[in-house]
Nucleic acid binder design. Structure first.
Lengths: 356, 356
DNA sequence: GAGCACTATGTAAACGTTTAACCTGCAATC
DNA sequence: GATTGCAGGTTAAACGTTTACATAGTGCTC
């Protein structure tokens, strides 16, 4: 910068102002400075700027694992939007380990990060609590606490409802922004699709102990109740490993006659169902319609290709950035909840498998 | 830091030295300083350090897309190893766009990044060239130019061999470190597995115009030649979309009688083959054995689960970091080539499908 | 007991920006 | 023609570290 100033015979202050298009600098000078920075390939020192201004244009992002295609998409959305707003994401994969979460925060603090996004954070609240204590602006994507009030006026869902009510009381509190996928609506959408196809016999394969699964179950149940088809089967695997999920579905198939419709709580579960059906000699979709939720990258390539409710993954990321930065950094916390969209592929059909 | 110094009645210089365990500082003082930093929750300013030292402990990492599970794993390996060595990765997804690549470099330069990793960079060499021009230490993972010499003494492979020879002349030149998966060996490993199972009729589904595919093809051919089984079919899709790959395989199946063995150049191609086989009424593995390469996350859950040659993805990432930082930052460029390992699942069996 | 080597610490400059506060002409105003 | 206002700058301090160099104390050697 000194060089640029010297070459032009002005002070560094002028250069600095010209570069940020301060109106107090004449147009001619501004132009000259811009030209010169171009010519000498001037690159501002982020470190110096940061030191002086104590703010960094960095968005700290903690994810559990980036090895998974789902989070990858969210991350893409974050990066693209951050770029538009002149920010740079700084990613940290915690692998779900608490020590790494803590370390991530230390790094962010050292780097003068002021904006913070947690993607599907673990159940442990320590990370988020510390983050707000340290004065960061935080947004959480698909966290535990984002449940919107409308879903809780009907209190008839036993354990799920109680847990959800707990979450509600936490939601909206504190300085956290929330962006979330509407799990309940997705559960309903998937289930209604099957109902609309003409199915009358259903099962839901739920996940183990994760909030999103609980909510999707609420959606499943709700859709069936409104159609007068409740009760129906709810399958639970002992553990999230695929074999266990397959076993749960296999158990259901043994006690059932085709045709039936299965709502899996996520696409991986749907894949397990596909495998179990294949083993058991049920054809999909003729004997069993399977619908997933998430639309992971692979959903289009299973055999048969999976009908599913797609999460707007990139949009989730982009909106989290918006929640922090738009209209202005540090504005009031926001909460956004996004709908999924049904993607019909090959794994669902009317009972018996007639063309839809 | 000033506070810590004041609280202890020493100078900031002493604190600075104590924190990096400078032996010139007495043990007692060192201990006292460490205790005090703990008590006051002192967090060093990365910006100030960077400004003063002109180096950043940051590793710039450019990937094409992080939305894909494969790169996610590599990234995990990078982060873990970087952490061990006291570095912090700064990720940038280029989506294959040249303007974003350029921008990534600008960001890195502004951030005083000195270490640079490109994961599966695009064919365009501009990014890498500029990076070395700017004085960065660069390592490339699965780049185009990493082909090791041993594979080129036998010049009998036509076009592939010519292209490869071109690459060779570039490899090892310049200040780039290379870490790569041994594509030729992987192609051989996959093919030998099928040969070992007793197959005599083969096909290879190759990719379109990517170096790794060319090399895997060389491996396929080499394995067949050494077993006296060459020539065999080589299938090429018009485009990388799944439908096109499926069509290529379907064409082959139409002109063939079971049983046969198919070596797909990657797992996605293998999945396409699985789908084509299913459509054509060929059973896998009874009528058709399919082996992929890469071991993407989904490979374990296809129907049937895919036999494949696994890339050591995390290790690729870790070794790229090592190439830059170990034994010391800025050491001589290294080249490492890593072997894959065969993972036998359900998609391969002896011809006719007898138990292996 | 003067000189020396060594240890433990202090002093102060420097890194490259930003920005509050201050200047300098010049035109408009009375 | 003195005063005011404003456009277009300049000056210099500050941000929080690191580090070359200087200094003070302590024990040894001769």
């Amino acid at each position: 910068m000194k060089d640029v100033a010297a070459a032009l015979g002005v002070s560094t202050a002028t250069v600095s102002r010209a570069l940020k298009d301060d109106p107090g600098i004449s147009l001619a000078t501004r132009q000259a400075v811009h030209d010169m920075t171009e010519r000498v390939q001037y690159r501002p020192s982020a470190a110096a700027r940061r030191l002086r201004t104590k703010s960094s244009s960095l968005i700290g992002v903690v994810v559990q694992s980036v090895g998974d295609g789902y989070i990858g998409e969210v991350v893409l959305g974050i990066q693209a939007r951050a770029r538009d707003l002149g920010y740079q994401p700084l990613f940290f994969a915690s692998e779900g380990r608490e020590d790494l979460e803590a370390e991530a925060l230390d790094v962010f603090l050292s780097e003068q990060v002021t904006e913070f996004i947690a993607v599907s954070p673990t159940g442990r609240p320590r990370l988020l609590r510390r983050a707000v204590e340290e004065g960061l602006h935080v947004a959480v994507i698909n966290g535990d606490t984002e449940i919107p009030a409308p879903y809780f006026d009907d209190a008839g869902h036993g354990r799920a409802a109680r847990r959800i009510t707990q979450f509600t009381t936490r939601a909206g509190q504190g300085p956290l922004s929330h962006v979330a996928f509407d799990d309940v609506a997705a559960g309903m959408l998937a289930t209604r699709h099957l109902i609309g196809l003409g199915h009358r016999q259903f099962a839901h394969l739920r996940g183990v102990n994760v909030t999103s699964s609980l909510l999707r179950l609420v959606g499943y149940r709700h859709a069936l109740e409104e159609a007068g088809l409740w009760p129906q089967a709810v399958l639970a695997a002992d553990s999230p490993v695929m074999a266990s999920r397959e076993a749960a579905v296999a158990g259901f198939l043994r006690g059932t006659r085709p045709p039936a419709g299965l709502v899996a709580y996520d696409d991986m579960s749907a894949v397990a169902a596909l495998r179990a059906a294949h083993q058991a000699g049920w054809r999909v979709p003729e004997d069993l319609s399977v619908v997933g939720i998430d639309d992971i990258q692979f959903a289009a390539y299973t055999n048969p290709a999976l009908t599913t409710v797609a999460q707007p993954k990139q949009e989730l990321g982009a909106l989290a950035v918006d929640a922090l930065l738009a209209p202005a950094p540090g504005a009031a916390p926001q909460a956004r909840i996004l709908d999924g969209s049904l993607i019909v592929r090959e794994s669902t059909a009317p009972p018996g498998g007639a063309a839809s």
